[in-house]
Amino acid sequence: MVERATPLGADFRPGSYGDFADGVGVTLSEPSTGTIVEATAWPGHEKALTAALGRGTGLSLALAPGAGAYRDAKAAAFNIGPGRFLVSGKDEGLVDDLARAVSLETGTITDLSHGRTALRIEGMATEWVLAKLFALDFSLDAFPVSAGRATAHHDFFVQIQRTGDHRFDLYVFRSFARAFAMALRHAAQDVGYAIK
């Protein structure tokens, strides 16, 4: 198997940066996601799609806008639009499993494993940093754990899943990943950050 290259470039290397004298506020990392898939149901077939996705990933997905599910280090999925989900998993074979699970009567599956890059941000200052970039309410009430949001910061389209009280996975278009990581790092300067 050929290893998938990261788009983040040589600058994204482990270390502590910014104003970290009193400890870092956030930690940035690139989680390994073997598979990223966009799955979309035909109108009226949303339930069938979530069921099929559940079979493929073991996640139980609710049908509400922005709802998501998360199994640490295994699989994650969240709603990003009407009948539309972003599904990710550690396993590279997942894309085939999902293609089998979702029939054309239910909807379609599009492989984005190479097309999207996940960045993880975690730590006590996470919400502070993200609020600089996104006009989203990051309070736990408004954005619960495992829920997802499709949003944008200027030219960056970003799909965000909350995977912990102070942890978010940000999915960006691969070609923008390096520039987005720069923006994220800049935003984290004042709280101090580490790259893992």
Partner: peptide, 17 residues
């Protein structure tokens, strides 16, 4: 019209609808 206007928007930076 100057007043209520029926118009389309796309949530381009979100769900795309």
């Amino acid at each position: 019209p100057a007043g209520p206007h029926h118009e389309y928007w796309q949530h381009a930076g979100g769900c795309r609808a």
